[in-house]
Amino acid sequence: MASKILIISPREDGSGRISLTHKAEGASGISRISCDVSPADLLQLVLFCEGCDLRRIYGEPQMAEVELDGLTVTYAPSGDEIHLLRQIGYSEKAARIACKTFLTEMAGVVEAVLDQAETSKHGITLKTLLKHADLPAAYAAQFTADETAAVLHRLHEMALLILNDRAMEKGSRFAKLLRAKKSRPEAEACAAELVASLADSLLTRAS
């Protein structure tokens, strides 16, 4: 069995670092994949992991991929694995790791990124908006009350990250909606629409 040590570390500025040290079967020596991750890329990695995990538990697992700066992360449902491909110039390094292991290591990163969003300028307002964004009835009917609460919690977390990122963009129309009380219903509708869209993307099962 290959030996692997995975470390994913968030930083206070919102960036992070991924490091995977492994020794493949039949190979001599230790190989290492490491990559610094920008705040924007770390956000995308968090959303990727949350989405894959929701599909694995409540929807239908399917192949997914996110491209960061110099690192491609792919979820392969056939083996329930995460594939890492690190490219520097013409040099490539690749490795595989169990999805459960990857998600476990990412848990602390997810919490750190969520905490930054919740304590941001718009965090409280966004959490208030999302309280009114329910799981579409078509999906709620598939789950027990406890499952519905768990799914909705995860969707709200993802929506919070996406909406906070959207609100932080320079000249953002969504940020303008948040600032004016008279446009708050429109902002609330945007939040509900996003939650419904995430549900459609992550929870739909093949018939």
Score class of each variant (00 low, 15 high):
178 L>W: 11
126 L>F: 08
201 S>Y: 04
205 R>V: 09
141 A>I: 03
90 Y>N: 14
62 Q>Y: 04
39 P>I: 06
165 D>S: 14
117 A>V: 03
150 A>G: 01
173 R>F: 09
104 T>L: 00
142 Q>I: 03
177 L>C: 04
67 E>Q: 15
45 L>W: 15
4 K>I: 04
59 G>P: 09
168 M>E: 11
188 E>F: 01
102 F>I: 01
120 S>Q: 01
151 V>W: 13
185 P>V: 15
100 K>I: 00
60 E>L: 08
31 S>H: 11
153 H>E: 01
104 T>E: 06
52 C>E: 10
133 A>Q: 05
173 R>T: 08
151 V>Q: 12
204 T>K: 15
170 K>L: 01
126 L>R: 14
167 A>C: 10
164 N>H: 07
5 I>H: 11
163 L>R: 06
111 E>C: 13
82 I>W: 01
152 L>K: 10
88 I>K: 09
179 R>I: 03
141 A>G: 01
192 A>F: 12
199 A>N: 03
7 I>F: 02
203 L>K: 07
102 F>W: 08
194 L>K: 11
7 I>S: 15
78 S>G: 05
138 A>L: 13
67 E>S: 15
115 D>L: 07
104 T>S: 11
168 M>H: 14
109 V>L: 14
142 Q>K: 13
41 D>N: 14
46 V>Y: 11
207 S>H: 14
147 E>Q: 11
143 F>N: 05
13 D>Q: 11
68 L>G: 07
30 I>T: 13
137 A>V: 04
119 T>S: 02
197 S>H: 14
165 D>N: 14
88 I>T: 04
2 A>P: 04
145 A>I: 11
161 L>R: 04
53 D>C: 07
81 E>A: 00
191 A>P: 09
183 S>K: 14
100 K>P: 00
87 Q>Y: 00
104 T>A: 07
104 T>W: 00
46 V>T: 11
69 D>K: 12
185 P>I: 15
144 T>L: 12
84 L>H: 13
15 S>C: 05
114 L>C: 11
169 E>Y: 02
83 H>P: 01
100 K>R: 05
11 R>S: 15
148 T>A: 15
10 P>V: 01
126 L>C: 09
72 T>Y: 00
198 L>K: 02
166 R>H: 12
55 R>M: 04
178 L>M: 10
59 G>N: 10
177 L>S: 07
112 A>M: 04
131 K>C: 01
68 L>Q: 12
20 L>N: 03
172 S>I: 05
1 M>S: 13
86 R>V: 01
131 K>F: 04
155 L>Q: 05
71 L>F: 02
133 A>S: 14
41 D>K: 02
112 A>V: 02
132 H>L: 05
19 S>N: 07
152 L>N: 11
17 R>V: 06
85 L>F: 00
22 H>V: 00
48 F>W: 13
77 P>S: 03
176 K>H: 12
207 S>R: 15
8 I>W: 02
7 I>T: 14
122 H>Q: 10
49 C>T: 09
166 R>K: 14
102 F>V: 02
203 L>C: 08
63 M>P: 03
108 G>N: 05
78 S>F: 03
15 S>H: 06
12 E>L: 07
186 E>I: 08
108 G>L: 06
127 K>A: 00
86 R>Q: 09
194 L>Q: 05
46 V>F: 08
121 K>I: 04
27 A>I: 03
58 Y>P: 02
